[in-house]
Computed example of a mutant assay.
Amino acid sequence: MPEYTIEFGKYGARGIKGSEAVGRQLDALAGGVASPVDTKRGMLARLRYLTRSPHARQAARDAGLTATDRTVKAWLDGKRRPNARNLERIERAYVSVRRQNVARYLLRRLNSRGGTRVELHPLNQSQVPRPQQRVLEFRSLNIRIWDRIVRAWAQGDAAALDDAWVDQIVDLGSQWGQYEYVTNVGFAA
C-alpha cells in the first residue's frame, strides 16, 4: 500500500492536494457573494449576511469579527470604512458562517441516493522527464458518506479534511497514492 507523497513536485509534477481540491469544489457549491470584499458592494453584502439575525451576529463574533455593533452600523451606513485588517476579518467570518449555514444542505444532497460520484483528474506530468513519469488515468469513485469531509470543511480544519479525504480514496485500491495530488476533483450536489 502506498504511503503519503513525501517530495511532491521533485521532478516537475504539478497539482494540488486532493483534499484542497475537494474544499474548493465545496466552496464553489456553497456559492456566496461574488463581489470582492474590498469593494463597497461586496463588503456591504457580507456585513448584511453577518448581521441579519442575532444568531448570525454571534456566529460572526465566534468566527473572529470583533468589531462593536456601533462600528458595524457605521460601516453599513457608509459613515466609516473598515481598514484592510477588518476587511480580512469580515471575509474570514463570512466564509466561516456561510460554510456552517450550507453544510447541512450540502451533506443531505451529497449523501442522497447512495452517495455522489467523484471524478479524479490526475496530476499534470507535462514537465516531468519521461523516465520519471507514471502512467496515470482519469478515475472516478462513489463516496457514500460525506459526513467527515463536510464537517471538516465547514470547520475550516485542513488536516481533518485531508484525513477524511484520504480515508475515502483508499477505496481506489493499491493506486490510491497516485491520486493524493490531482489537478482537479469534480462532483456536483
Score class of each variant (00 low, 15 high):
1 M>A: 13
3 E>R: 12
3 E>S: 12
4 Y>P: 07
4 Y>G: 10
6 I>D: 10
18 G>A: 15
19 S>V: 02
21 A>K: 01
22 V>A: 04
24 R>E: 09
25 Q>L: 14
27 D>P: 01
27 D>V: 01
27 D>T: 04
33 V>K: 00
38 D>E: 15
40 K>E: 15
43 M>F: 12
44 L>W: 08
44 L>R: 05
46 R>I: 04
49 Y>G: 00
53 S>C: 04
64 G>R: 04
65 L>S: 04
67 A>S: 11
70 R>L: 09
71 T>E: 08
73 K>E: 07
74 A>K: 14
77 D>S: 13
79 K>Y: 11
80 R>L: 13
80 R>W: 10
80 R>D: 11
81 R>D: 14
86 N>Y: 12
87 L>G: 01
100 Q>D: 00
103 A>K: 01
104 R>F: 02
106 L>V: 01
108 R>V: 07
110 L>E: 02
115 G>S: 05
115 G>D: 02
116 T>D: 01
121 H>C: 11
123 L>W: 11
124 N>S: 10
125 Q>P: 05
126 S>G: 14
132 Q>H: 11
133 Q>P: 07
134 R>I: 07
135 V>Y: 07
136 L>R: 07
137 E>D: 12
143 I>L: 04
147 D>Q: 15
150 V>E: 02
151 R>E: 14
154 A>V: 00
154 A>S: 03
155 Q>A: 09
155 Q>I: 12
157 D>V: 04
157 D>H: 06
158 A>Y: 09
159 A>P: 07
161 L>A: 10
162 D>I: 02
163 D>Y: 14
165 W>R: 00
166 V>R: 15
168 Q>A: 04
173 G>M: 12
173 G>A: 10
174 S>M: 09
175 Q>S: 09
175 Q>K: 10
176 W>A: 15
177 G>Y: 01
178 Q>E: 12
179 Y>N: 03
180 E>H: 11
181 Y>G: 03
185 V>A: 06
185 V>D: 08
188 A>Y: 08
